Amino acid sequence: MDAKTGLFYLFAAVLLFAAFRVITARNPVYAALYLVLAFFQASAIWLLLRAEFLAISLVLVYVGAVMVLFLFVVMMLDINVEGLREGFWKHFPLAAGVGALIALEMAAVLMGGFRLSAPKTPLASGPDTSNTLELGKLLYTQYLYPLEIAAVILLVAIIAAIALTLRTRKDSKYVNPADQVRVKARDRVRIVQMPVTRQAEPAAEPAAPAAETKA
């Protein structure tokens, strides 16, 4: 067994352990951290397969953005874990049925084998070949329509998320930006005519104290 095979088994073992801990950890923060570890191990396996672009994308997109967002949300919401555990056995039969169905579908795909057809355009190979360049050519030529469909689906998801969270509150005060743009100088400043200021009149001298009467 060479070093590359040994690293593959090491990364795969850590990946399986992290994936198992994601679904068994009691604390949601620990589960998210184990998921970050699983992403790192998957990116290391991509590096062993000489798919540097996919490995870097996995780290930047999922670990650098998605999982950081998950951690912030989990820590800010302060989820009541004990409340979530209530009714576990009530929903266990449905969850087990869905899991068994997914396992059967995956088994049917894996038992059938990976029947890969030759690409329409042969990929270049060689020591000076960039797999990122070849992947870009493949995405924007043979898989252009699926890529555009995925982009449209993501755009719809973004708009739906904004629409669900954008709610007008009656107790919040805000200014319409359109009104601020259309404002004019006369709406901001108003000149009022005031009478000329007169000189202040001198104050009256206080009255002298009365003379004391002699006995």
Results as ranks from 00 to 15, higher is better:
179 D>V: 04
182 R>L: 12
196 V>T: 14
137 K>V: 04
179 D>S: 08
109 V>H: 09
97 G>I: 08
67 M>W: 09
40 F>T: 02
87 G>N: 08
32 A>V: 03
130 S>W: 01
17 F>M: 11
75 M>W: 09
183 V>T: 13
163 A>N: 03
180 Q>R: 08
73 V>I: 13
97 G>S: 12
27 N>Q: 06
12 A>P: 00
168 T>E: 07
146 P>D: 11
49 L>I: 10
25 A>W: 00
144 L>S: 06
138 L>Q: 07
129 T>I: 15
96 A>F: 15
170 K>G: 13
56 I>K: 03
197 T>I: 10
77 L>M: 12
209 P>G: 09
201 E>P: 15
6 G>C: 04
56 I>A: 11
187 D>E: 15
19 A>I: 01
86 E>F: 06
198 R>F: 14
37 L>I: 11
16 L>D: 10
86 E>S: 12
206 P>W: 11
66 V>C: 11
42 A>H: 03
125 S>K: 12
150 A>G: 04
51 A>T: 01
14 V>W: 02
155 L>Q: 06
71 L>Y: 02
139 L>K: 02
111 M>N: 09
127 P>N: 03
207 A>M: 11
54 L>C: 03
51 A>H: 08
92 F>V: 05
145 Y>W: 14
113 G>W: 02
87 G>V: 00
17 F>V: 08
214 K>D: 15
108 A>L: 12
69 L>P: 00
141 T>Q: 04
115 R>S: 12
10 L>R: 09
196 V>G: 13
191 I>K: 07
27 N>C: 05
136 G>A: 08
110 L>G: 07
91 H>G: 08
185 A>P: 01
100 A>D: 01
139 L>P: 00
169 R>G: 12
118 A>T: 12
64 G>D: 12
163 A>E: 06
17 F>S: 14
54 L>E: 06
84 L>T: 02
122 P>K: 03
29 V>G: 00
153 I>N: 05
77 L>I: 06
149 I>K: 11
177 P>G: 02
42 A>F: 03
202 P>W: 07
39 F>R: 04
20 F>D: 14
75 M>K: 08
78 D>R: 15
138 L>D: 03
205 E>G: 05
107 A>T: 07
159 I>M: 04
128 D>Q: 06
73 V>R: 14
33 L>N: 06
46 W>I: 00
86 E>Q: 15
60 L>I: 15
57 S>Y: 11
79 I>H: 01
21 R>I: 01
50 R>G: 10
121 T>Q: 11
120 K>D: 13
81 V>T: 12
56 I>Y: 06
62 Y>R: 07
123 L>R: 08
